[in-house]
Design a protein around this nucleic acid. Structure first.
Lengths: 228, 228
DNA sequence: TTCATCAAGATTGTTGACAATTCTTTCTCC
DNA sequence: GGAGAAAGAATTGTCAACAATCTTGATGAA
């Protein structure tokens, strides 16, 4: 079992939530599956108190749904959820790009250059184009979110929207082959941000997210059919 | 005491959270004040379990901060928090306005007409211009958020950003006199939405939020000075 | 006076048992 | 045979006590 019980310091609930989140986003616990409190308490050798707290944490993140008096299950994201997710992503990431452009300094261009060169290498190594799913794509967007210097945007993206996105991809086995195209879009966004051009950066980011959505939507329709 | 203990059904934690939120946003419990678990448990005649759950709920809403092993306090929002808040508001409400415009039907114009007429009456009755703070302004923005038909946007606005905004206003005794101007801006936004003009609706909404921020920012500087 | 140390008190984190609710199964009746 | 009701099992909600941690105040030395 991968459950290493490092009884280190810190809230027990957060450690449990970390392990559970990893289990869910890696697909070890499937969408819709029950998350009984006693079962989890036994597995982690802990009482039900911290387990409840951990489930609440995952509920905040939007990857678990809790029905009062009934229990917690891994959330099942449908097409409508995915659409809503991408609408919010477009708004928040475009805003983040605009803010990042406003805060860009002389060293910004070099920073993006290094990052994107590294990503180009990853894509060359895996031509299948798992880029969009791997650490690369997420990294690029996270760098911008951090540059925006807005704790709320950062929290929404990192703690809620991205986990839900991962859950969506695990469920629908999404592996877009958009790697090379996405990288190109990233380059143009980076250039606009480094130039301090907030308006264009926001516009390009919004378009980038929309393209990502179109690609995902197509796959959603497919797996929806083969799932019936 | 206003604490009516209706032992009706539903999670105890949610009832507690409702009462506490009301206490905080009305100013009965001040910013920075401690929220000891035992004290709350005694006050509500309940054990510490539900109290902890309620505090976590308010922590999600962003009006309470919880420091592990130390406790919960009413959150103290500073200028940086306010700025971040308005940046996110601008992004999300502009998106909501765009989505609302895309979903507008033939009855939309009449709906906004009734709502804004009512608001005009309220302003006439209270020329001081408490409009921005009262139910009126909030209503207008909530109607648009609901029209957007996006559960995530609605949750972020109604459950997190607006409560934090109220907390900010309570702390700084903010009573903007922007009533008449705000109403005018509302009218133009409503017209754009009813026309199905997403682009203009988004633009006007973004400008409207920015104006609101400028007005608030001025007051923040004032109370910041008189608070030292 | 100021700083560090330490002990007492207070507060949160966790636990296991009990109460209330929901879900499942079975039985009865039509 | 199927629909509905009722009993049973399983699960969540709540509680009160215990353990771990932090905060506070006093004490003493530099």
């Amino acid at each position: 079992m991968s459950t290493i019980l490092m009884k280190s310091r810190g809230l027990a609930a957060e450690r449990l939530a970390d392990v559970l989140r990893e289990d869910i986003l890696s697909g070890r616990i499937a969408s819709g599956e029950r998350l009984g409190e006693v079962a989890l308490a036994e597995r982690f050798e802990v009482s039900r108190g911290p387990v409840r707290a951990a489930l609440n944490l995952l509920n905040e993140a939007g990857i678990v749904t809790i029905v009062p008096n009934s229990g917690a299950r891994v959330r099942e994201l449908g097409r409508a959820d995915a659409r809503a997710l991408y609408e919010v992503r477009a708004a928040l990431e475009a805003e983040a790009a605009m803010l990042a452009a406003a805060r860009a300094g002389p060293e910004t261009a070099a920073l993006f250059g290094d990052l994107l060169d590294q990503h180009a290498g990853e894509i060359a190594a895996h031509p299948e184009g798992a880029y969009l799913q791997g650490a690369g794509d997420r990294d690029f967007h996270m760098v911008i979110a951090r540059m925006a210097d807005n704790p709320i945007i950062l929290r929404y993206l990192a703690r809620e929207l991205y986990p839900q996105l991962s859950l969506l991809r695990v469920k629908h086995r999404n592996v877009t082959g958009r790697g090379a195209k996405a990288l190109n879009e990233h380059k143009r966004i980076a250039a606009a941000i480094a130039d301090g051009d907030a308006e264009v950066a926001g516009l390009l980011m919004r378009r980038h997210i929309r393209n990502s959505w179109t690609a995902l939507e197509a796959q959603l329709s497919e797996t929806a059919k083969e799932m019936e």
